[in-house]
Design a protein around this nucleic acid. Structure first.
Length: 192
DNA sequence: AGCACGATGCTCT
DNA sequence: GAGCATCGTGCTT
C-alpha cells in the first residue's frame, strides 16, 4: 500500500464529531521494523474540549494531555489502568484540546502477527487495538500525516449511514451528565 | 451471556 | 493517595 496516501491534516482540522464519524472505515496503518500491519477502523469516540467533563483536558493542560492542545493530525497516546495504551487522533485547531479515541479495528494486513500478539483473541477494544499494532507511549505526539512516524491513517471503504451506530462513550463511570451519556461513540454495525 | 473482580502503575491533587 | 477513556478470568444464571 502506498504510504503517501495518508489522510491530510485538513481531515483532522474539523469538528471532532465529524472526524470521529469519518474515521469509520478508514485504514489504520502501522509500519514497524519493516513490517506493515493495518486494520479497518470500526469504532471511535469523540472527546471535545475543556467543557467536556469526560475529556482528559477538562481540568486544563498537563504533561500527560499536552498533545491534545497541539495541532491536529497528531497521535495522543496515553497509559491507563496500569497496563494499557490508548490511541487518539488529535482534532480541531491548535490550542483547542480535542481528539478521537480509536477503539476497534478489523485486521487487514499482518493478520498472523496481529493474531500472535493477541494470542488469537479479538481486536475490538482500545487496548487490544494498540497491543495488536504495537503502539505505545513512544508514539505519543507523532505526526499521523507523515509516514515517517510509522503510524498513519489512509482512506478505506466508505461506511454508509445505515451501518453507523451511535451511543454513549464507554467507561466514564464517574463523569457527570450530560457528558456521561452523550452519544459521542460511533461504530460500524458488523457482526463480531 | 452477563457480571464481578483483580491486575498493575502512571498522573495529578 | 485516589482514580483511572481496560482486559481477561472465573463464577453465576
Amino acid at each position: 500500500m502506498n504510504s503517501s496516501s495518508c489522510l491530510p491534516r485538513e481531515f483532522y482540522a474539523r469538528p471532532t464529531l465529524t472526524v470521529a464519524r469519518a474515521l469509520l472505515g478508514m485504514r489504520l496503518v502501522r509500519l514497524q521494523d519493516g513490517v506493515q500491519l493495518s486494520g479497518i477502523i470500526t469504532e471511535a469516540e469523540a472527546y471535545i474540549g475543556q467543557e467536556d467533563l469526560g475529556c482528559h483536558a477538562h481540568s486544563g493542560k498537563s504533561l500527560r494531555n499536552a498533545v491534545m492542545f497541539g495541532p491536529p493530525g497528531h497521535a495522543y497516546v496515553y497509559f491507563t489502568y496500569g497496563m494499557h495504551w490508548m490511541l487518539n487522533a488529535v482534532t480541531e485547531r491548535q490550542d483547542f484540546p480535542a481528539a478521537v479515541l480509536l477503539r476497534a479495528i478489523q485486521p487487514l494486513e499482518g493478520i498472523e502477527i496481529i493474531s500472535a500478539r493477541r494470542q488469537g483473541r479479538d481486536t475490538f477494544g482500545p487496548a487490544k487495538l494498540t497491543q495488536a499494532l504495537g503502539i505505545d507511549g513512544t508514539l505519543n505526539g507523532i505526526d499521523l500525516c507523515s509516514p515517517a512516524s510509522g503510524l498513519w491513517i489512509e482512506p478505506g471503504p466508505p461506511v454508509p449511514e445505515s451501518a453507523v451506530l451511535t451511543g454513549p462513550r464507554v467507561g466514564l463511570y464517574t463523569v457527570p451528565e450530560p457528558w456521561k451519556s452523550i452519544p459521542w461513540r460511533f461504530r460500524t454495525a458488523i457482526n463480531h
